[in-house]
Design a protein around this nucleic acid. Structure first.
Lengths: 389, 389
DNA sequence: GTGAAAGCGCTAACAG
DNA sequence: CTGTTAGCGCTTTCAC
């Protein structure tokens, strides 16, 4: 095994004191140029890298970001999180952090695990996913003033200052999809969603409803819901296609439901009634752009997951490297955090959230006023058009 | 934030010295019963948990297992790894370890990242996935005597002692699938695989070929290959179905190819030649039992991924908690490692690999003779039968 | 059995 | 600008 190289070895090699080495690494401005170079050279030669454990003991910072890995749902939709996780790992690495994984079955056990983790590994921050109504995790973390971001809005929370979050604008996505269908000549556009009560599901339904309303189409009888998978999607699709005034297009809240709907739409006889036997085929659009959608030629709404992950890291880096304490003033750290997470090159695809203080047109995020609410980021999904619509 | 509770606080609370607390936690046998209880009570009351950083500095062990998260391939097949990762996180937690994530684009950059990680976070072990011919990662790790396991055999390595690994017996899987098709009356069973040269692909092809040979069926003209996705699968399937002597069943090396094949098989006209117009439908079987397979009613071979992950952790725990130094004698640690990883309850589904020393019938793994080669585990996939076959 | 002392590698504070 | 000192929380000798 490669022998451990300590700061003392570097100091000896560079003929300076241990402290000078530490200064070169942590406070470069404090050291004379030629000393700095000599030390850096020694670091290079010896392959020195600071021990996190020792550094953590001294500074109290672990450079670890903890997040939960979900029990892979049998569902097709479960793959979305995995792509987010990959992006998170990459962005975190770019910002000098590592991702620590844990599992938990419910909110309570997740809190317990976080508590454990905090005592043992002291992660600097947490990334929470799958936010929902009555989410106790966020208030627990916020109550202890622990740095965290959620991927997902704080559904059902009272308006006003909330924790930092990143989300994808589901309503905008379904609105765009609905518009796409309207443009293609469809009027009777059905929606297959999740039962009311889920933040994400309701949001996506809203985008469809409002766009239909704006086009003067009555959504009555075009709305169906289930929390099932492919089979449920197929059943609900048949129901919509066999109705008195059948739908000619189906927009679905998830790819799994959409895949079922697609099956119904493509099965012989479907659309016969709706399109007079040989008209336009039934259009189907899903949500998440999963690999299954790609494989089946299903048009779907794609979430910018890598970017969402990068935003999460940027928000965290801002709180962590910028101000230290959460909720403190951190105006200046913004740009640094943004580029630090590797967002610089890509054009901003985000829409600033409508906060009072939000008025920087080109910005990716809603900047935080000193002492004001932390930042929120709402990203836009994009429609990937395939055979199905 | 919950104030940090140190061992000193516990000592004070229990009215003993700091050292006694440490003894209770690390060497319980050394402490008198009532002292032990008083200390444990204090630990409970104060919610004390040892700081990993401090412990790591003293012991040199981080209780961290590092693994790479793959850049989610656009492919349907990419989801397999995610399920493994979830299992790994769970099993690791049960054994008292946490999973640290990293990314890398190729073997070389992975080695560089591992090197970095080693210097900074000092993970106790690595889990490598996606082993392949000429894999330089394993020799690099082995050369430094670093503890690691691979999920995947050391393809193309010279026979003899190798590093510990866990794998799923692909050939046994395709053999079982082929037998299933033979039992259903099929004779002309085509295989759609990956181009020769990939360990996994060749292995899976071999299971099909040998089973066909055993049944006296000539595989000539029934073998196709591509490293493409769904579209490639569809094309190759049509080719096999349109051949002079068409196939009546299709076994595929992956679900993505199988989904394409399924599309070809279900399209009108398919099987007309093969089955005289109205015979038995074309059977299709995939590999990996992905969510897409489930959704499309595709029969597929399911890998016991959670179990594979548990075995990886068990192997590591054996090396880490058992003998300390890799390659040392570790006979007695075996059972401990096994139950420690939570394998106890589930019945063993594994087949011991044919090592000379392997002769414990009920065992999940091939035990290691002192000083002998580390353990290898070969698990069996299971056929999940759905509409497609 | 229990307590005292040393030190893992690092950095924050201060002295030179 | 550079070097010295101290101590983060823990475990591992070693005395008692």
């Amino acid at each position: 095994m490669a022998q451990k190289v300590t700061i003392t070895d570097v100091a000896r090699h560079a003929k300076v004191s241990r402290q000078t080495v530490s200064n070169v690494l942590n406070t470069p401005g404090l050291v004379r140029e030629d000393t700095r170079r000599r030390v850096l050279e020694a670091v290079e030669t010896l392959g020195y890298r600071a021990s996190q454990a020792a550094r953590q003991m001294r500074t109290g910072r672990s450079r670890l970001i903890a997040t939960r890995i979900e029990p892979t749902r049998d569902d097709i939709d479960g793959t979305v999180y995995d792509r987010f996780l990959h992006g998170l790992t990459e962005s975190a690495a770019e910002a000098g952090y590592r991702v620590l994984l844990y599992t938990a079955d419910d909110d309570q056990s997740e809190i317990a695990t976080i508590d454990d983790l905090l005592a043992a590994y002291e992660p600097d921050a947490f990334v929470l996913t799958d936010t929902h109504h009555g989410d106790v995790r966020t208030s627990w973390l916020a109550g202890r003033r622990l740095p965290f971001v959620t991927f997902g809005r704080p559904w059902g929370m009272p308006e006003g200052p909330s924790h930092p979050w990143v989300d994808v604008d589901g309503a905008a996505g379904t609105a765009a999809a609905t518009r796409h269908l309207l443009d293609a000549g469809h009027r009777r556009i059905g929606f297959i969603g999740w039962p009311p009560g889920s933040g994400v599901g309701d949001d996506r339904r809203a985008g469809w409803a409002r766009t239909l309303a704006a086009a003067g189409v009555d959504p009555a009888g075009l709305d169906r819901a289930s929390d099932g998978g492919v089979a449920a999607g197929e059943a609900l699709a048949r129901d919509l296609l066999d109705a008195d005034r059948p739908a000619t297009a189906l927009l679905c809240v998830s790819d799994s439901l959409a895949l079922g709907a697609l099956h119904a739409a493509r099965s012989p006889g479907a659309g016969g009634r709706a399109n007079g036997g040989a008209g336009m085929p039934i259009a189907v659009i899903g949500f998440d752009d999963t690999s299954a959608a790609r494989a089946m030629g299903l048009t779907s709404l794609s979430q910018p997951l890598a970017e969402a992950a990068a935003c999460c890291v940027a928000l965290l880096a801002r709180a962590l490297d910028g101000a230290g304490v959460i909720g403190e003033a951190n105006g200046g750290a913004f740009d640094e955090a943004r580029s630090g997470a590797g967002l610089g090159a890509h054009g901003p695809v985000a829409t600033p959230v409508g906060t009072e203080t939000s008025r920087s047109p080109g910005s990716t995020m809603a900047p935080t006023a000193p002492g004001g609410p932390p930042a929120q980021v709402l990203l836009q999904p994009s429609l990937v058009v395939r055979r199905s619509a």
